[in-house]
Design a protein around this nucleic acid. Structure first.
Lengths: 213, 213
DNA sequence: TGAGTGACTGATATAGATATTAGTCACAAC
DNA sequence: GTTGTGACTAATATCTATATCAGTCACTCA
């Protein structure tokens, strides 16, 4: 299916909340493609379920054979973009760089993805913001993957001797993510649009100094 | 005057933007007291300039002999609370504690003040939020004072040998304030209400590790 | 000349009637 | 049993007429 190719991992484990009927039905993919296009063009609020149904040549009632609600469709689309952001971040750190470099690249990648979404696909950004602010399921997925990524980098850095080993691992990782929230959280992104590369670089420098052995 | 006693420093330098007529006129004080009470009770949006005027026994037109606009009154009130928060912070670090302790106390004080405002005076908090988000004048004042406070603590810590001296002072201070934004910025406060003492403590620990010589 | 105001305007908010929309269900066609 | 829908309801959004409000100004009164 078109849509599942764009997902990493098992799409059903991550995005199947609010789904109805067969998970791999072809119509589900058509609904999601239509939803993606409509959310991009009109935004989440102005998109109607009837419009979605019309776009793929069915009646509105049929949509509800595949999704619990309009929000469930929104979550599925938001999840795709959240997964894209996470995938890009994982790809950015999957190389031969040092642990400090990886941490730097991780946050640069996430912020870059978010800022791009903010500027290039504002309608989608607004929806993803809602997802984060209202703590949709996809937000949990995002947080878990980010936590895991940070943890793996810090662990690696500790093993290689690049990072200190005294502070408890979980505290360190929580604090790092908290520090970076002022760049990653949608509610803050708007205040850092002008000079985020410099400000973020300085913040990562601080984080790396805190990790020094 | 009642109101100026509650200010530290020169109130005219800080809050006189949008003022009209004599700065020390007794009516100005009455307007501000009425405004403070109305903003507390009804919020900024639901408070009317006519209501303010009626409360002190004058007509609405007279108010405009003292303030450019309703927002100017709002700024003056927001400034009072911003100044209170800053004063509390300065008081919290004016003791014989070590520099690391001071940094810890500084951020604890600011967050505490903000959270208290959030819970106890929600209407005022909403107004102060607007002031910060829309970058009113009082926000500049707040930022400048906070920057100065952080800088003085870091400088002192560097002199005493408690903090490292390699990183440029201004970069260090900017990064520290950026890191703490996820607790100080009104847009983020709501997401950290549940466990801010623990999360903030961990973040300050990280900052202090980054400052270690 | 300074203190104070009624009456005015354009912009904004409110309210209530109207129209869309999300979501369900019984049912038809195959 | 699977695919698909028209008709329905309750909730929500949109529209519009009305009222309120921010802000000004010419004016009065002392």
């Amino acid at each position: 299916m078109e849509y599942s190719r764009r997902m990493s991992g098992n799409i059903h484990d991550m995005a199947s909340e609010g789904w109805r009927g067969p998970a791999d039905h072809i119509i589900r993919g058509q609904i999601m493609e239509a939803a993606d296009a409509h959310f991009r063009q009109f935004g989440y609020g102005k998109t109607t379920v009837s419009g979605l149904a019309g776009a793929i040549g069915f009646s509105k009632a049929y949509i509800y054979k595949f999704f619990d609600s309009k929000q469930a469709i929104g979550e599925a689309i938001a999840m795709r973009h959240v997964v894209e952001i996470c995938d890009a971040a994982e790809k950015a750190v999957k190389n031969d760089k040092t642990s400090p470099e990886k941490l730097r690249l991780l946050f640069r990648s996430v912020t870059k993805s978010s800022v791009d979404l903010f500027f290039l696909e504002r309608q989608l950004y607004d929806m993803v913001s809602h997802a984060v602010v209202e703590d949709w399921h996809c937000n949990r997925v995002m947080n878990d993957r980010m936590q895991a990524l940070v943890e793996s980098i810090v662990k690696e850095g500790r093993l290689s001797g690049a990072f200190e080993r005294k502070t408890p691992l979980d505290e360190t990782c929580r604090a790092i993510r908290q520090a970076m929230k002022s760049f990653c959280h949608p509610a803050m992104l708007a205040y850092n649009l002008d000079n985020w590369p410099k400000a973020q670089n300085e913040l990562v420098n601080l984080v790396l100094r805190s990790l020094a052995p």
